[in-house]
Design a protein around this nucleic acid. Sequence first.
DNA 1: GCAATGGTTCGGCCACGGCCGAACTGTCCC
DNA 2: GGGACAGTTCGGCCGTGGCCGAACCATTGC
Lengths: 226, 226
Amino acid sequence: MSDITRMASIAALLGDPARANILTALMDGRALTAKELAFAAHVSPQTTSGHLARLTDADLLTVEKQGRHRYFRLASPLVGQMLEGVMAVAGPEPGRTTAWRGGDALRTARTCYDHLAGRLGVALADSLTAAGHVALSPDGGEVTDRGHAFLCDFGAVPLAGKRIFCRPCLDWSERRPHIAGRLGAALASRCLELAWIARQRDSRAVSITAAGAHGFAERFGIHIDG
Amino acid sequence: MSDITRMASIAALLGDPARANILTALMDGRALTAKELAFAAHVSPQTTSGHLARLTDADLLTVEKQGRHRYFRLASPLVGQMLEGVMAVAGPEPGRTTAWRGGDALRTARTCYDHLAGRLGVALADSLTAAGHVALSPDGGEVTDRGHAFLCDFGAVPLAGKRIFCRPCLDWSERRPHIAGRLGAALASRCLELAWIARQRDSRAVSITAAGAHGFAERFGIHIDG
DNA sequence: GCAATGGTTCGGCCACGGCCGAACTGTCCC
DNA sequence: GGGACAGTTCGGCCGTGGCCGAACCATTGC
């Protein structure tokens, strides 16, 4: 199969509205179940199953089995970039000025469910592990004694609950882990509380405030440009 | 029509092998006729006509009438970037290391028919106009007396012939004009003769040699990185 | 064990769209 | 004028593929 034939078959996969819905629903790096994707695609679960099979066959998606669920996510940053490339061409509808500029902002910092992702999320995870406050392993994470004190001092106290305390979540745009679970949620809500970050309308992107730029640098040694 | 529906319809246009052939044939910025594109797409002229109509309707291509020919070219750099994005995902075939890295090289310097395009081609045009050697206008170009002397000294003497002497050619990746016509061809062949540039296998990209880097800087004040 | 739920496979329906042959328009050139 | 050539439009054929209903696994929980 030639280069352009393969290119055409990949593009054909994006060319169906249902599959396009599925892929864009996954663009923020979350992993969603087949049923959630069926809802996003506005088609029945059977039909969705077929689409998902084709997308995973083409290596656009990866799948993880977990109990009776199957979680799908974008297979690589390249896939997200490809989608953005198509968006960039399709986006500027005549008579509409909002070009698709979410790309950069999304990569800089965004929420993933209720925790932080993007460059900021990954940098935060790096900082905490480098300082020996948190130890991440593929299937979970631990907070050290020093880490516990540090986080209490910072004001990020996870709520009690049976939800997993800390786990690494693979970041779509950075392709490296950030911190999810109750700890991730606590960090995000504390940053919001301190007004270090601010939500943006109609987007999962978050912006880093001036106070945040200063705070992240001082407390975590993190410098995010843009 | 929603964002993702439009995205899907754009992607669907790329998803047909014939259209994918057409678009990739135009990726180096040349303008080709419907018949040439029919040949590239391996389908009949009638079928090609339909494809071209859809591609221009979607603003992926622009068309210029010229006599009984219609010349098609990519409508914007975004289209080329989109194609590269899809190539990047489709390209790395398992068991094959040649990823699609032509993109950068093509943008740096390439041939367009028999003259130079890309950053180098545009820089050359800029240099010659800035120095007052050449005056480009939308439908042609003139060489000044000083320019004539300069070009003779450089060794770029256009062949006689009825082909147009000098005309601007819109550069796909830079979206600014470079020099085509007999003059453009003479410049390119002289650069090749001096071994300032070298052709690459199976590609329209050309590489700038060490002598070229030096020569372009000294004679034309051009510095191309990469 | 059984029911409930997530997910897949199968079969059949149907529409969209790619393809070409044939006929038509428009331009160039002798 | 007439012939050659570029390109388009029309009509009809046909395959691909999207969609859902129904039935079928697999896992969880009672």
